[in-house]
Design a protein around this nucleic acid. Sequence first.
DNA 1: ATATAACCGAGACGGTACGTCATGTCTTCGC
DNA 2: GCGAAGACATGACGTACCGTCTCGGTTATAT
Lengths: 205, 205, 205, 205
Amino acid sequence: MPQHTRTGRPRSVAADAAILQATRAALVELGWSKLTMGDVAARAGVAKTTLYRRWANKNEMVVDAVAVLFDELELPDRGSLLADVEGVVLQFAALLNRPEAKTALMAVVAESTRDDALRERVRSALVDRQKRLVVTGRERAQARGELPYEDDPCEASRTTDLIFDVVAGAVVHRALVSAEPVDEEWARRFTRLLVSGLGSLQDSP
Amino acid sequence: MPQHTRTGRPRSVAADAAILQATRAALVELGWSKLTMGDVAARAGVAKTTLYRRWANKNEMVVDAVAVLFDELELPDRGSLLADVEGVVLQFAALLNRPEAKTALMAVVAESTRDDALRERVRSALVDRQKRLVVTGRERAQARGELPYEDDPCEASRTTDLIFDVVAGAVVHRALVSAEPVDEEWARRFTRLLVSGLGSLQDSP
Amino acid sequence: MPQHTRTGRPRSVAADAAILQATRAALVELGWSKLTMGDVAARAGVAKTTLYRRWANKNEMVVDAVAVLFDELELPDRGSLLADVEGVVLQFAALLNRPEAKTALMAVVAESTRDDALRERVRSALVDRQKRLVVTGRERAQARGELPYEDDPCEASRTTDLIFDVVAGAVVHRALVSAEPVDEEWARRFTRLLVSGLGSLQDSP
Amino acid sequence: MPQHTRTGRPRSVAADAAILQATRAALVELGWSKLTMGDVAARAGVAKTTLYRRWANKNEMVVDAVAVLFDELELPDRGSLLADVEGVVLQFAALLNRPEAKTALMAVVAESTRDDALRERVRSALVDRQKRLVVTGRERAQARGELPYEDDPCEASRTTDLIFDVVAGAVVHRALVSAEPVDEEWARRFTRLLVSGLGSLQDSP
DNA sequence: ATATAACCGAGACGGTACGTCATGTCTTCGC
DNA sequence: GCGAAGACATGACGTACCGTCTCGGTTATAT
């Protein structure tokens, strides 16, 4: 790495962490629209300038602050496609129950409908991170023989995308739009619907 | 009786219409976060106070302005469950393609995670309006023999809710989060997945 | 005279009284600049329209409400010019001590520097009412032989005006600008200065 | 020392000057009651917040803007008490003829009857500044032998106050309440009255 | 008796200004 | 030479009054 240890910047790393930490705390307390840069700076014990030196605006900062939450999502092998899907649904639901995620996720999506740079950031920070889980789960199910291998890579990608939108969409919609709990019963019900749908899909052309 | 023979000058119905109209126009041009009350008032040829006399804040106003868009959603009988679902998916996708809906829907949901009054308004103005379609479609499929009748009303309601979250969630997620087009091919693919899932669901206990 | 007994419902005299009464009460509590038409209307148990049917604007209404206070000013004969002046000074001071007068008088004068209609109203409602006292006092002093008769009516008027401005000006300035009490001692001191000035005036050419 | 070595960007002195200048200009054109903070800010090429950072409200700002006008008042030695008084009367009258002073003076006095902080500001910015002239003039007359020395300092102060209220009060009342011109003739007439009053005052007990 | 006309209350209307707040940029000084 | 502190221009916020304008209804005189 060319990183040639410039004169006196031990602060930088600490500041980054403090800012993102403060951003999440502010999100929990205030929600997206009441969160202000000045308040985050004050919580982080940092000047407003320091925030703007790192992110171009509020949106980008909040996306980064929230993105790390999605790193927690994992796909432990529970032995069957059904169990794997149910597990990831409940994990995702638990994440959406945390107020910093709940508030920020929709707000950032809303903003991204108008802001191309933000949309790109959302894609790489949130979407790709989650889609990876679908890919893994599918490969595992194929290895178990629960799902057929797909020869056409384009077709495979389309199916992955579809599954991703169905799973993530249903959970988000239930949690945030319908505002009903994503509990174990709902997860079981949804998983049965999805997996049986996937199972009988291959028969039709 | 709810009426109370109001005294004083009655509110102008023309103003109501002009404001909601102006709100939608502003949404298209500016998006949610750039939309201002003053601008909407100016477009509507109305004083800002006239807005605040009717709605407590921007959010409530925008929900009402957007709600009427959902009145367009219909469920014409296309002869089969598959065709009905595909039809409603495409209709909903077309709605989400309209910039005033796209921008406003997510923003309003984001706000509603923090604001109980707003959540209630979203439920009655958006959620219930859409869920009605699911109920209709299901009854029609049952009449056709494509789906079994459900005796337990509580169970029926849960299934309705599940279908609603899966359909609406998947379409919204595809359109706004993944930011990919909801075209005929995707609709067909998704519909097949859902309908076959529903079909094979009744076999499992 | 054109008094053709107008048709239609006559204006409520009770409302007139209630409004002026309410205006004075509001002046005491709120002061001129915080007094609002809506508040006065509410206090009087009357609609705002009823106010505007009688006065063109806030200023005119307040002048009328305050004017009656000046009707209380009298000039009882105390036997000497000195005693008469001292009496009227203390009377005027007592009037300016009442919060509705104190607040309103200066405010209305301030407004009248920009508003010709208001200036005219101030002149007839306040200035002329007070100047009358000076005229009376002077005639009485002339009858007593304390002051010489003035042949030139123009000259007489100028002297009246001068005395009026000196007396009213000094009292108002002491009470409102210097914000010091106009007590008996000050009144005696001021009266001696004025009367001895008037006495020795006739000697100089 | 009261200083506390302030950190951060210092306030712009250019802005201070521009604001007070703009305030006086706005007073001339619009008068007190039509003057708005937004307009003053725009004239000064400054943001509204910059005004509110310096003054708590319109009143305080206008007092400061007007106060400097009173710095112009001087008391050149014209050789006699009579001439000195007449000079200061005409100077003061000229000041009151300027529209920014005329309008603001009474308005600010009116407000100060309700606002203690404002009253204090008026006293230090306007009253004390003018009273200084009376003190100077009196000392000069005593040196000339036109007025007796006063041993009791308390008595001296009372006489100073009295003269101040009579002079300032009469001029203000003539100019603003009676709304008549304070011309040379009036000044001569008033001065004769005052000076002869002062002269014959010492004879009475 | 009934019309006509001006009044009344209530309250919505188009405006204007308020004073506050957040944004993102820019100085200044201290470490 | 970076960074905290904080002033800056901008511009929206939501509120408060202004003075006007419907409303439905009331109370007078004039027919």
